[in-house]
Design a protein around this nucleic acid. Structure first.
Lengths: 302, 302
DNA sequence: ACGGTCCATACGCCTAGGGATATCAGACCA
DNA sequence: TGGTCTGATATCCCTAGGCGTATGGACCGT
């Protein structure tokens, strides 16, 4: 691609003159005097190397060369004006695409409200939503596959990423309805020591997993993992079948299953945090916009 | 269509930098030092109103706005370079379209050779050939519907048109083979005084028609028109059926029909001219090229 | 801590190009 | 033949933008 060394004004003058076919009128439309317009056209013709207009007494006509150039000139000008407008729209964050990764469980809590407020404020922005667990979200942020992550237990060792807590919620015990402890309103953690656990595999979210096993450790035992499941939906389903118990963020109570009971735990100060994550120094204005929306969208705490 | 006030160099710099993602390399490819490139980009970003590149330590990246602008910039640049090249090609007469009108009878004589030499010399030029009689050709030249006419008996009262004789040929008598005069090698015009004539209607070519009736007048009679026909092919066919006789340019001898005889006439100095016609002041270089080709293409005289 | 890399900034220089006004030249018309 | 319309030319002015060299400042490796 070589660089055609033309001032765009000349092209614009050319297009206008091609429409008016009258130097005086075209100059008026361009807001300049007639002699400068003659110069512009002349310079352009010099650069092309051929006449673009045929000046007959009384009428100005396009030459074949001019007719050939006209559509290209028009296209170039509209391409540029449109491109500039689009770039400005994207630059100001009025339009564009924001790619968001989110943990499946958040589809029940923070995600809907967040999307609603954002879409309301930026209707021109397309949101690409990808369900993914915590660890892949971190990787995808680094990959620039997503721009925003919505995850649990933000990891600490991520200097290039920013995190902001959106929600902090307690843990609950997840029990089969038939489990003896389901009769209590509150379950002490130590009481779960002997039950098999259904847990998330460590790979999908090391922080949350470690958090849970840490809670158990504080209560004096190491949970025995009977089964792994990647989604909380599945965890609850497995608990319902009696395969074991679990510890989960309170918001998963929204998953209603007849055979599952959720109970507060003792000690009750253990909380898990949901955070938005983004690349520090991400120039995308939509990221800033979303973070601002997060600041104002304070969804119902569970 | 508003005028985006951007030097194209900045766009070019932008595109190259977007490909290289490295100021030093891009500057080298552009053949300038690095600081000027920084300036170009900065100026462009100022005009857009947003950053186009994200300068992170160690890596340069396109911002979303930049990603949005890039394809438009590329399109605009290629449109312009292509458009300029096309305009230059057309301006120099290497490519383009030439619209030619021609009298049907000339398809048998001057037209093929002319087209052949022209096409050989300007293979990039498209030739649009339209069969039409003389009067419509004159109108089409004024309309700018055609650029070149190939016609008989160029009219004199056309100040805006140029004419150049391509071929000058005698008239011949067209007789049914059974006609008594077909027995002679030469026919005196006066001998045709009593035969009905098949002639072209005056509207399609007043000059030629007037020429023929003029010849008859000189021989002392007014031809009695038995039938009109627009094409010489038809004239011959009608003569063959015995409907009458005719006078025609010698080149129509190429139309071979069993029942038709062509005979020289007395006096034999009457000739009809075939000419190319064009608009004087036509800026189209192809017209000049074709006229030059006519000068050299001297087809076989009939 | 110290060069090396990479981009930005700061001058200074220069030209191209855009603008205006005044004037000229040809065509056309009354 | 003189007025009008239209486009081209001639000057002059101004500034935007392009380039270079020199320098600063952040970051990264050893």
């Amino acid at each position: 691609m070589d660089r055609p060394e033309l001032p765009l004004q000349q092209l614009h003058a050319f297009v206008v003159l091609a429409e008016e076919l009258h130097f005086g009128h075209a100059a008026a439309r361009l807001g300049i005097a007639q002699p400068p317009l003659s110069q512009q056209i002349r310079r352009l013709e010099d650069k092309v190397g051929h006449a673009l207009f045929h000046r007959a007494p009384g009428r100005v006509t396009l030459t074949p060369a001019g007719r050939e150039l006209l559509p290209a000139a028009r296209r170039a000008l509209t391409d540029l004006t449109d491109g500039l407008a689009a770039a400005r729209a994207v630059g100001s964050g009025r339009t564009g695409t924001l790619r968001i990764g989110f943990a499946a469980s958040l589809a029940l809590t923070v995600l809907p409200g967040l999307l609603r407020t954002f879409r309301h404020r930026f209707p021109g922005v397309r949101l690409d939503i990808h369900e993914m667990t915590t660890a892949p979200q971190i990787a995808a942020l680094h990959d620039r596959t997503i721009d925003i992550g919505l995850l649990r237990e933000p990891p600490a060792d991520q200097p290039e990423l920013g995190f902001r807590t959106v929600l902090s919620e307690p843990f609950v015990a997840v029990l089969p309805a038939a489990h003896p402890l389901a009769a209590q309103r509150t379950v002490r953690l130590a009481q779960l020591a002997d039950s098999p656990f259904v847990l998330l595999p460590r790979e999908v979210g090391p922080q949350l997993r470690d958090r849970i096993t840490g809670l158990c450790a504080e209560a004096g035992f190491t949970p025995r993992t009977a089964q792994h499941a990647v989604e909380w939906q599945t965890v609850c389903a497995l608990v319902e079948t009696g395969l074991g118990v679990s510890l989960a963020p309170a918001s998963i109570r929204r998953i209603r299953l007849k055979g599952v009971a959720f109970r507060r735990i003792e000690p009750g100060d253990a909380r898990t945090r949901v955070a938005v994550a983004w690349r520090e120094n991400d120039p995308n204005p939509l990221v800033a916009h979303l973070l601002a929306a997060v600041g104002q969208d304070r969804p119902d705490r569970v």
